[in-house]
Nucleic acid binder design. Structure first.
Lengths: 259, 259
DNA sequence: GAGTGGATTTCGCAT
DNA sequence: ATGCGAAGTCCACTC
């Protein structure tokens, strides 16, 4: 059993030429690199930013993405998406790493004058990630079990382009009326209603029969209730968790098999 | 000069009761905790997710936020925002950490059966962070130097509530016409135009003079050009970087000083 | 506490 | 490549 990982770990290394060569090698080999220490950062690209010195965690991943994390907060204070090219050097006891990106042209410069922890290694991760209870799950649930939306609803299709955008689901109700469904995985606000309203107008101008609009979401925000009434739209409470459960029972059906 | 950080670093520790006690202490003391190793993860809350075993970096910050990073990708695969409460234990050589959150009720469970690197320390970071070239910068630039929008434009106010939402900036042009400005920090799409159009309708129904709409953005997306023309709105190219520069010259003026 | 809009949003999908 | 909407979005601000 391999309980040993062949990685590199250095505590409080002196920032000198040796470290420079080490960093260059690690970046060239595209290893997972982790630095904790005192650093300052400048960013220029879509926007610009400056971060005064402080103790942070910097992570450079194998795919060329960069994260700078402060000791607090969920979000990275600075970052770069995957695909960066790196330049590094040591000068006067300061490690300077620059992450460069094209399209858009951006550069993130990180300067360390103290390193508490440096670690570099190859990480293997082929584990599968599965997410349940997304808006897509709600959509699938409605398409496979239309009665959860409304008794007698017959879906026709989904993700239908109608100029202002895409209709999540549409079909026919038990009285033969056209039904447009807008799905939200959390409490729906005015924007969702306006979106639905636009789709209805677009469809109304195309088909020659009554068009209904249904907002399917776990909840609506307060003012939205009134807006719904004003526009003559209806609201169907629908829980994403519940939809995921329904799908779980009827496993791995593909929508393409039905439509 | 303090080139030494009083942190804890362990390589390939055996996962036993000692580690359990250590982790409990670190979490209780709210230290910055970093774990690299083989783990699997389950999440239940607003949605649910499952991540099969693989080698990842887990960070638990002092404020109770959690990040799980795979060896690739900019985004965390699993996470929790600040404010979590933690429970931990070791069982059969597996370290189990659960991050629990109220409102919404969520739990993130992390299981390590191999730890390559464990590090815990207190990080000090009081460095100031400054970001330039936001939409707010563009707004300020227009208000302080209205001519960058249009010669003769006189701003009246900003962030004005007009029922469908907030008007970024409004004022009077050199011919005395009402002007509504919608600002976007990047290429504006249909949504921006429709937003502006709504504001115009709302204002038109209130004031008794001609109302113009100007979309201020670095660019517009392709189809949007036509929509602008159809609705009789104009487009003013405006670069967020340039706005930031302008503001940089006239430093630290507050909008409240003018309006 | 709820609602609304921005973000260096990122990501994925479809045109 | 571009456009468009979702996200376990998060965050900040207003009401």
């Amino acid at each position: 059993m391999a309980s040993q990982n062949h990685g590199l770990v250095m505590e409080n290394p002196t920032i000198n030429e040796e470290i420079q060569n080490l960093i260059k090698k690690v970046l060239a080999h595209r290893e997972f690199l982790l630095l904790i220490g005192n650093c300052w950062i400048t960013y220029k690209g879509r926007a610009s930013s400056q971060l005064e010195p402080g103790e942070r965690l910097v992570v450079i991943k194998e795919d060329g993405s960069v994260l700078v994390h402060r000791p607090n907060g969920y979000e990275a204070v600075n970052w770069q998406p995957p695909g960066c090219i790196f330049r590094s050097r040591v000068e006067d006891g300061v490690l300077h790493i620059t992450a460069i990106r094209r399209k858009p042209t951006e550069s993130l410069s990180i300067y360390f004058n103290l390193i508490y922890l440096l670690s570099a290694m190859k990480l293997k991760d082929h584990g599968k990630f599965t997410l349940y209870a997304s808006e897509e799950d709600m959509q699938k649930a409605i398409l496979l079990y239309p009665s959860i939306l409304e008794e007698g609803f017959k879906p026709i299709s989904y993700e239908k382009k109608v100029e202002p955008g895409f209709i999540d689901v549409y079909g026919i109700d038990k009285e033969g009326k056209f039904v447009i469904v807008e799905i939200k995985r959390k409490a729906a606000g005015r924007d969702a209603v306006l979106q639905l309203s636009k789709y209805m107008q677009a469809v109304q101008s195309m088909v020659n029969r009554e068009v209904r609009g249904i907002l399917a979401a776990p909840d609506v925000t307060k003012g939205t209730q009134r807006l719904l009434a004003t526009l003559g739209l209806s609201f169907k409470p629908l829980n994403p968790r519940k939809c995921a459960e329904i799908l779980h029972k009827s496993q791995s059906l593909k929508l393409e098999d039905f439509f």
